[in-house]
């Protein structure tokens, strides 16, 4: 028995060293930008952490947010926009990689300033259901499209052609809701009573991540994968000649998710976004990622 004590109690110094590090690091925090000026008073924005813009994003959604494997940093259209917003508010961007389904709870919980994230930029399509819980500031637009094998063996031309076929989606996405239904009787999902596939249901396969869904299509396990058009375009580009895209929904706006009870913050983000549009920074970011078609409001 005695021999084991040192082994077991090694945990204690480990825990203590963690605590010690905790004590010594507090002075390291703090702003490093001193030359930055903004006309917005950031002390009134109810930020969860002073001097930082805490942004939740599910970093598994190229080309809007994903990880650069060589630099280990988060990149994409949304990340650039979030960083630009932070820069213009003289804040340090603090981007948190969180699973999609947890994000809205992390924004709406508690009272302003005590929740987990100030905002989320993660390809959120603006829907009335979401707007009941949070405010959504439009900054981008994307449609939806179905990816099918290049030869389109099942001859899919529209959403209703999916009836009876197996379709992969990422769980929690709008596309999943369109098939499964969201409980809204005026707008039933394909598989719901009153939906187009009620009698010949779509075999819906929901995956935690988009690439799992696409992988099912690549291996021939499903007949189609259904997702936002920038994502379809991205994966189509990554696998030249393997897929065909079928547009189902024309581009609709995506929004930055903010609390609906924190007006100063929402106003500040809107102000910064309109400044970015006015001076061309916004257009430059979209152009850099090949997403000019995603410009919102739409280009004439």
């Amino acid at each position: 028995m005695r021999r084991f004590r040192p082994a077991i109690f090694m945990v204690i110094p480990l825990a203590l060293s963690l605590l010690a590090a905790c004590g010594s690091s507090s002075q390291a925090a703090g702003g490093s930008t001193s030359a930055c000026t903004t006309k917005i008073d950031t002390s009134k924005l109810n930020l969860v952490l002073p001097g930082k813009l805490t942004v939740a994003s599910d970093i598994t959604y190229p080309p809007q947010e994903y990880v650069d494997p060589t630099t280990h940093s988060y990149i994409g259209v949304d990340i650039d926009i979030a960083n630009e917003i932070a820069k213009r508010l003289c804040l340090t961007p603090n981007i948190q990689n969180v699973q999609f389904n947890t994000i809205i709870a992390g924004i709406t919980s508690s009272t302003p300033g005590n929740q987990y994230y100030d905002m989320s930029i993660s390809a959120w399509t603006i829907t009335p259901d979401r707007q009941k819980q949070v405010d959504m500031i439009p900054y981008f637009q994307a449609g939806e499209s179905i990816l099918v094998p290049a030869s389109n063996p099942k001859n899919i031309k529209s959403k209703t052609d999916l009836c009876g076929l197996s379709v992969a989606v990422e769980s929690g996405t709008t596309e999943e809701g369109e098939i499964k239904g969201t409980g809204d009787p005026t707008n039933p999902g394909l598989n719901e009573t009153g939906g187009a596939c009620a009698n010949n249901k779509v075999k819906l396969l929901s995956y935690d991540t988009e690439d799992q869904a696409i992988q099912q299509l690549l291996t021939g396990s499903v007949d189609a994968a259904y997702q936002d058009s920038p994502v379809s375009d991205y994966y189509n580009g990554k696998n030249p000649g393997k897929f065909t895209t079928v547009t189902t929904v024309a581009a609709s706006p995506e929004g930055i998710v903010v609390r609906n009870d924190n007006a100063p913050f929402e106003t500040a983000v809107k102000q910064v976004l309109s400044d970015m549009r006015a001076d061309g920074t916004y257009a430059a970011i979209l152009k850099k990622w090949g997403q000019t078609s995603g410009t919102y409001p739409p280009l004439p």
Binding site: V67, D68, N97, D211, I214
Partner: peptide, 9 residues
């Protein structure tokens, strides 16, 4: 995260 980046989940 890496699986998405490289499309090799």
């Amino acid at each position: 995260a890496y699986g998405f980046t490289d499309f090799k989940p």
